[in-house]
Design a protein around this nucleic acid. Sequence first.
DNA 1: TCTGGGGTCCTAGGACCC
DNA 2: TCTGGGGTCCTAGGACCC
Length: 336
Amino acid sequence: MLHVDLDQFVAAVEVLRRPELRGRPVVVGGDGDPTKRGVVSTASYAARAYGVHSGLPLRTAARRCPDAVFLPVDREACDAASSEVMATLREFDAVVQVLGWDEAFLAVEGDDPEATAGEIRGRVREATGLECTVGIGGNKLQAKLASGLGKPAGVLRLTGEDWFEVLGERPTDALWGIGPKTAKRLTAMGVDTVTQLAAADPHDLAERFGPTTGPWLVRLARGQDDSPVVGTPHVARSRSRETTYQHDLDDWDEVQRQVLYLAQRVASDVAAERRPAIRIVVKVRYAPFATRTHGRALPAPSTEVKAIQQAALAALAQFAEQRPVRLLGVRAEFAR
DNA sequence: TCTGGGGTCCTAGGACCC
DNA sequence: TCTGGGGTCCTAGGACCC
C-alpha cells in the first residue's frame, strides 16, 4: 500500500510558474492580501521555518514572516496540476484512490515497494515538475502516517513491526483522525501517547466516545485499518458555498440577500451535478465566532434555483437571533 | 490582529410508531 | 398523578481532514 503526498502543493504550483520564487518564503491563502481576514492554505518550507503553517491567520503569518510573498490560491492552476499528477499515478498498475488535490493511495502488488515509490517520484517530477513523498505501509493508515514522516521528497516505510517504535511515544494527535479536542479528552483520562491508547479498553472508550468512535480509536493507535482502496470516482454527498465577510453584516435584510445569492450559487452547482438536492442547510456564524445551522427539507427533490432559494430562506427564518453575522453558508444535500 | 472554504462522518436528542 | 421498551427517522452540533 502506498500513499503519495505532494510537497507544499499549492505553493509549489506557484513556484512552477514563477521560478524566481524557488527557495523563498511563499504563503498562499485567502485572496493573497495578508491585511484581510483569511488563513494560510499552504506555506513553502522556507516560510514554515518562520512558524507559518496551514490554518494560521494570514495577518499572523505576515507578522511572523514579513518578507514572504503572499498569493491567492489559484484553483484552476491547482486543478490542472492535480489532474496531471493523478493521471501520472494511474499509469501504474494499481487501484488509485484520490483524496483532494494533492494526495492519493495506490494499492500496488509487488515485492519491492521502495522501487515503485522511487519510480512514482521520478515520473511525477518528470510529468509535472512537482516533488512528492511516498509512504509505504501494510494498510492505508500506515502508509498515510509514513508519508507524513517521510516529508519532504522522501520514501518511508512504516509496518506493523516498527509502528510502536516510531509512533509509540508520540501524542495521540499524531494519528490520522485524532485532533486537539479528542487528544485533550484522552489526556484527561490519563491517555497521552499512542502506546497508552493502544492498550486502552475498547468498551471503556465506547462508553465515552460512542459505539463506533471508541473502538475505532484503539484500532487507530494499534495501526490497524482494513479499509479498502476505492478506485471508483467520488460521489459528493453535498455541495456548499460559504463566505466570511470582511465586515460583519448587521442588517438582517442584507443577510437575507446574501443567503439568496449563496443559494443561487449552490443551485447552479447542484444543476451541474444533475442530481436533485433533498435538503438545504444554512450556516450562520455570529460575531465573533459562534456558529449555528438550521436546515429545511425541500418539498420535493429539486435542482431548481427558486425551490432552493425558498428553502434557504425558510431555513434562515428558523434563526431566532438577528445579531451581527461574520459568515454565511448554504449547503445542498443529495439523496443517499 | 485571531480563527477560510469545501467536505465527511458520528453522536445525541426528540418525534413517532408499535 | 402516572406513564415500558424497542426501532427508526430527522435534526443540530461536534470533530476532523485537506
